[in-house]
Design a protein around this nucleic acid. Structure first.
Lengths: 115, 115
DNA sequence: GTAACTACTTACCCAGAGGTAACTACTATA
DNA sequence: TATAGTAGTTACCTCTGGGTAAGTAGTTAC
């Protein structure tokens, strides 16, 4: 295996680590919603209008386990729950921006072609 | 809907466009393999050692349809096929780099925590 | 008392993502 | 003649991501 191949293997490994965390239909949208500040369950659900409570609950738990999202219970009446990004979650800012930029670029390219 | 919400909705839309293209276990790895230059079917399969020919064939077709990858047939004996990135595929460089950077960062954070 | 809002959980179902194995068709080499 | 390498295709199976619908438990407002 030459050096170029080794670099490629290293990159493939790193991409798998990242993909494991961001894989799925809802995780990136949830993280994006939380970059706009701390939010409650219902607020995220309203932002991402077509997510079901089941999926939101499930994906928030997974993100919490990966230390991307922090869940805070407030001892108010009634009890409220707040979700926010951890420092690790906030470290995804550049990644999220590139996803957005490329998404916009891709849409423009597709429209150009179709007209 | 206030301005902050509108920005959030726009971002969510853009992320969905991008996610539709990069979703799945194999697409990002395939694109990464091709950033190291034009490759043949068997070469990609050797780089990504645990992909089956079925999945590689299927995902290459999808990427070709989205104009991320170009397929070139060479009229040699025997016939060889080469895959390379299109300009649109090459425009993913920044996105791929951020995925890699964050993947490395994430792995470091996880290791820190586990020790 | 009843409706509505908070934040979920549980049960059930299905399409499709992905895996495995075998097969095709052609060429080159021993 | 047979084995190996080129580039896939096809059939079949399994598992799980995600959807739907309904239920839970507490509080507040009418």
């Amino acid at each position: 295996m030459n050096q170029k191949d080794q670099v490629c293997q290293y990159k493939l490994m790193a991409s798998r680590d990242a993909l494991e965390v961001i894989q799925g239909k809802w995780r990136i949208p949830i993280i994006i919603a939380l970059t706009h500040g701390t939010k409650r369950f219902g607020e995220i659900q309203r932002d991402i209008s077509d997510i079901s409570p089941k999926m939101l609950s499930q994906e928030l738990k997974a993100l919490e386990m990966n230390k991307i999202v922090k869940r805070t219970l407030h001892d108010t009446m009634p009890v409220t729950t707040e979700y926010s990004l951890t420092p690790l979650g906030e470290s995804m800012t550049n990644l999220l921006n590139e996803i957005l930029n490329w998404g916009i670029h891709f849409r423009e390219e597709v429209l150009k072609r179709d007209n």
